[in-house]
Simulated scan of single mutants.
Amino acid sequence: MREIVFDTETTGLDPNTGDRVTELGCVEVIDCIPTGKTFHTYVNPQRSIPKEVIEITGLTAEFLADKPLFEEIAEDFLAFVGDAVLVAHNAPFDRGFINMELARLGHPIYLEDRFKDTARIARAKFPGSYVSLDALCKRFDISLDTRDKHGALIDALLLAEVYLELTGGRTRALDLSGRHASADGKVTFPARAPRPQPLVSRVSDAERAAHAAFIDELGDDALWKRLSNV
């Protein structure tokens, strides 16, 4: 399943009182595994930024003055998200800002059931524990070396790693749980897309001929021959 892990930086806490988005970072994941595709942009909020917010994000009005307006990046953002589920930490906050910006432009807003909240998942998984992004990174031994300030793309990349751990960790990718078992108990595995560019064979013609001769010596019941006929 394709999902978009994302984060926003803003001028404040309330989109209903004039606060705006200043940075947007998105990471594509498929079956909770990052694909390497990202979307990132700074946004000119067309307003001042409080000192306490600058101390957290490092983003000043001067730095953002020549950055695109949200209306200039909206179509690219919507295209990147597509019909994917949106994953955020404290999702109601990010949903409120994204929907405010979309509504200002006359775009349909994202409904609540389109979002997954990793903070809520973490609270259910670790009741009574701190579930900030920093705390979860430390719990899962995810390096915070790249995070000297809050940044939307950096935080989205970290959150993608946290989300993977919250949903089963990297062993999930092996999918050995049998949850794809059919009614008769046979386990099937989802097909993976072929490589865009097939790998070049490193087997020489001589090695192929030697292998074929060896298989012939094993007779018609050789496993290699049976598998080649499947």
Score class of each variant (00 low, 15 high):
Ser132Met: 14
Asn99Trp: 04
Ala156Trp: 13
Leu159Ala: 02
Ser143Ile: 10
Thr41Tyr: 09
Lys116Leu: 05
Leu78Val: 12
Val29Cys: 04
Thr41Ser: 15
Phe93Arg: 02
Ile215Tyr: 14
Thr10Arg: 02
Leu78Ile: 10
Phe80Ala: 07
Cys137Ala: 14
Asp175Asn: 14
Glu62His: 08
Arg114Pro: 02
Phe189Trp: 13
Val162Ser: 01
Ala206Leu: 12
Glu72Asn: 11
Ala212Glu: 15
Ser143Gln: 10
His107Leu: 01
Thr188Leu: 12
Ser228Glu: 12
Leu102Met: 13
Phe39His: 09
Thr57Leu: 13
Arg104Leu: 06
Asn44Cys: 10
Glu3Phe: 08
Ala213Tyr: 14
Asn44Tyr: 12
Arg114His: 04
Asp155Gly: 13
Glu112Val: 09
Leu166Arg: 01
Ala191Leu: 10
Asp148Gln: 08
Ala84Val: 08
Lys138Glu: 13
Pro92Gly: 08
Gln46Thr: 03
Val5Thr: 00
Val43Ser: 07
Leu159Gly: 01
Asn229Phe: 12
Glu101Asn: 06
Pro50Ser: 13
Glu207Asp: 15
His40Val: 10
Cys32Asn: 10
His107Thr: 00
His180Phe: 15
Asp134Ser: 13
Ile142Val: 04
His211Pro: 09
Ala160Gly: 05
Ser204Val: 05
Ala156Leu: 13
Leu157Gln: 11
Val162Thr: 03
Ser132Asp: 06
Val21Glu: 00
Leu223Val: 15
Pro50Met: 05
Ala173Glu: 14
Lys138Trp: 08
Pro45Asn: 01
Leu144Met: 13
Arg139Glu: 15
Phe63Ala: 02
Ala103Tyr: 11
Ala65Ile: 02
